[in-house]
Design a protein around this nucleic acid. Structure first.
Lengths: 209, 209
DNA sequence: GGCCATAACTTAGCGCTGTTAAGTTAACGA
DNA sequence: TCGTTAACTTAACAGCGCTAAGTTATGGCC
C-alpha cells in the first residue's frame, strides 16, 4: 500500500513480492481497460519495483497472467460449485450453472476475458487434463447433463458433447453482450436479463425429453 | 507484387495506394497469427511505402482494420444471404444460417476475429444502425425467426431477442472451438461437426412449437 | 566475528510498437 | 512558368516486453 517506502524483501521472502505483483496485476486489470492496458512497467511501478524484477518471479508476461488466471479460476469454480449445490434436479442444475456463469462473466468482464477469451491458459504447458484450470467447473456441467440423460428427463445425448454446446452458448452470451455493450446504442442490444431468460428457456426446451 | 519498384501514386491516384494497404493488411492477417502480428511497419514494408504514409489514408490502425472489417462483412453478408435463399422454411432457414455462420468462423478464423471478437467496429463512429457492418446479415436471422413465430411453427418469442440468443449461441461455438483448438489435446474438444449438429438439434427443439 | 554464496533487485539497453511534426517531391491547373 | 497541394519521406517520441550484466544485503557456515 506504500510502494514508495517499500523495503527489499529479505532472503526467503521472495514470495511476498510475487504475491504483491499478482495483486497489483489483478488490481490494474480491473481498474484499467482490459489486458493490453496492463503493462509490466505499470505493474512494477505499482509494486514499487523495477520492471526486470518481475522476471525473477515469473517467466514472462503470459506466465504472470496464467497465475492470475489460476487464482481467479479458484473463485470461479467455487461459484459454480455453490450454484450446483443449490439445485434440486438436473434441469434446475443446468439452469443455475448457466445463470451463474453468465452472471460471473458480466459482473467481472476483465476476469472473464483473462479466463475465457485470451488464450493465456493455452500458452502455458499443462500436464494433465485434470490440472487444467476450470476443468473442475466444466465437469459439474457434464455431470448435470449426464444425470439428466440417465434419469430420462433429458433427451438422449452425449453428455460431453451437450455440455460443450451449453458452455458455448453461455460463453457466446457473455462475449456477445460484452462486445455489444461497447457499441452503445447503435445496435439494439437486448437487456442482458431478458437475453439470459430467453437462452435458458430455449436451452431447457432443447434438452428436456 | 513488386514493392521494390513501386512508383509514387500520381495526383488523384491515392485510392490505389489505399487499396494496396488494405490488400496487404488482409494478406498479412491471414498469413500471420492474428491481429497483433500485423504491424503498421510490416504493412508499409509490404506495400513498399514508409509507415507514416499509412496515416495519409487511414486515421489510425483501428480505422484501417475497420475498413478491412467492412470489406469482409460484404463477403460474409453475401454468404448468409445465399444460405438464407437456399432455405425452404423458417426452421430450415435458421439452421442453414447457423451452419453457414459457424462454417465461416471456423474456416476463416482471422477474418472472424476481426469481425466479431476484436471490437474494431465499436471504436469507429457509425452514424446509423443500418450502416453498421453486418447488420444486414443479422436482419436475415431476425426475419427468419419472425417468420417462424408468425407462422406458428416456432414457439412465441420476441424475434429480436431470440435472434440475438441464436447469434450468441453460434458465436460461442466459433470462439470456443477456436480457443480449444489451441489447447491441443489437453481438453477433450469434440469434433466441431458433432458439436454444430448437437447445437442445431438443441436449437430447433428449443424453437419449434 | 568474518567470509561468501546467493536471493533480491537495479541500471542500461535492444528491438519492437503506434503515431506525429516537419520537410520533400512532383503533378496539375491557371 | 509558377504556385498549390497531393503524396510521400525523414526523424523522432513515448511506450512496450524482455535481457545481460552489475549491485546490494542477508543468512548460514567455519
Amino acid at each position: 500500500m506504500s510502494p514508495r517506502t517499500r523495503t527489499r524483501a529479505k532472503r526467503g521472502e521472495g514470495e511476498r513480492t510475487r504475491t504483491a505483483i499478482l495483486d497489483a496485476t489483478e488490481r490494474l486489470l480491473v481498474r484499467k481497460g482490459g489486458m493490453d492496458a496492463v503493462s509490466i512497467r505499470r505493474i512494477a511501478d505499482d509494486v514499487g519495483v523495477t520492471p526486470p524484477a518481475i522476471y525473477l518471479h515469473f517467466a514472462d508476461k503470459d506466465g504472470l497472467f496464467f497465475e492470475v488466471c489460476r487464482r481467479r479460476f479458484l473463485e470461479f469454480t467455487d461459484l459454480m460449485k455453490r450454484a450446483s449445490e443449490d439445485a434440486t434436479d438436473p434441469a434446475d442444475r443446468v439452469e443455475r450453472l448457466g445463470r451463474a456463469y453468465v452472471a460471473y462473466g458480466l459482473e467481472r468482464p476483465e476476469h472473464y476475458e483473462v479466463l475465457f477469451v485470451h488464450k493465456v491458459a493455452a500458452t502455458v504447458d499443462v500436464g494433465d487434463t485434470q490440472d487444467l484450470p476450470g476443468m473442475e467447473a466444466f465437469q459439474l456441467l457434464v455431470d448435470a447433463v449426464a444425470e439428466g440423460v440417465a434419469r430420462g428427463v433429458f433427451r438422449p445425448a452425449d453428455p460431453l458433447l451437450a455440455a460443450t454446446d451449453l458452455w458455448a452458448h453461455v460463453h457466446g452470451i457473455v462475449t456477445l453482450v460484452l462486445m455489444l455493450r461497447e457499441l452503445g446504442e447503435v445496435f439494439p442490444t437486448p437487456q442482458s436479463a431478458a437475453l439470459i431468460d430467453q437462452a435458458m428457456t430455449r436451452t431447457l426446451h432443447g434438452l428436456l425429453a
